[in-house]
Amino acid sequence: MPTHQLLLGAQALWEELARAPRSFPPPDGVNVIVSPESGLCPPGWVGVVVLGGSALVTAPAESTARALRTALAGLPPSALVDAAAVREVLPVAGMLGPAALAYVTPEGFRPAAGPWAVERLPGGRPALRALEEAAGEEDSAEASLDEITSRAFVVREHGRVVAAAGYRAWSRRTAHISVLTAPGARGRGLARTTASAAVADALATGLLPQWRARPPASRRVAAALGFEELGAQLSLEPAPDGPAPRPLATLLP
């Protein structure tokens, strides 16, 4: 599948999540729409997804959308998923992300094998919960192993699960990949090995693997497996007074 078709598939996925079919603008464009039920962000927040150089922004109400169009006017799409750039033009009470969005085709997939045996476990097993506890709350929340709908692909050492991966079935036959490695077992290729098994399983069932990540280490694992970064996602909680227009000085060269 060429990159262009991969991009169209990714955009169609996020349009469906935004409850707004065919809403991505042409390259270099920004489309701010009203979508109270948007799945791009938590309820009441502003969702931003940039894919292929075009940005789709969802607002919970028309008043928020109007203010966003004014505040974001003139910004290139890439700036809308730059946390620092966004904070310069919008009063923000909370932020999730940005997270890179990457996808892989069967042709582009580069499987990774290691000296470890990969075991399959049903999701939600106590061994996975023990791994999440060892990894800590922040890393476990990033991985979201508790949300996978596939089996978990795990590596054990001395009887203990030290790395696991799986995926959650999303809209439009998308497989959202989750990967987690115990802190003391990182840097040895275990994430690549378990993630490779999960990706191979998703591709074998005709799903489009998606890798959403913030940490550079996670993004490197995705790149090693052949994933292409096509854009990024950011969620914004508007400040109580809502988005405000930028001062004139910020609009000047």
Rank of each mutant, 00 (worst) to 15 (best):
P2H: 03
H4I: 04
H4L: 12
L8W: 07
L13D: 00
W14E: 11
W14C: 06
E16S: 10
R19E: 09
R22S: 11
V32L: 14
V32E: 10
P36L: 07
S38F: 07
P42W: 05
V48N: 11
G53H: 01
L56A: 04
L56Y: 08
P60M: 06
E62I: 03
A65F: 11
A65K: 11
T70G: 09
A73Y: 12
G74D: 08
L75S: 08
A79P: 05
L80C: 05
L80N: 08
V81C: 08
D82F: 13
A85R: 01
A85Y: 06
R87Y: 05
V89C: 15
P91Y: 02
P91N: 01
M95Y: 09
L96R: 09
A100L: 08
L101V: 03
A102C: 04
Y103T: 05
T105C: 00
F109M: 00
F109D: 00
R110N: 08
A113G: 12
E119Y: 15
L121N: 06
P122Q: 10
R125H: 14
P126T: 06
E132K: 00
E133M: 02
A135T: 13
E137R: 14
E138K: 15
D146R: 14
S150I: 13
A152I: 03
F153Y: 12
V155F: 11
G159E: 14
G159S: 15
A165R: 00
W170P: 03
H176K: 13
L180G: 04
A182M: 11
G187T: 11
L190C: 05
T194V: 15
V199H: 01
A202N: 05
L203R: 07
V221M: 07
A239D: 15
P240W: 07
R246E: 11
T250Q: 12
T250L: 15
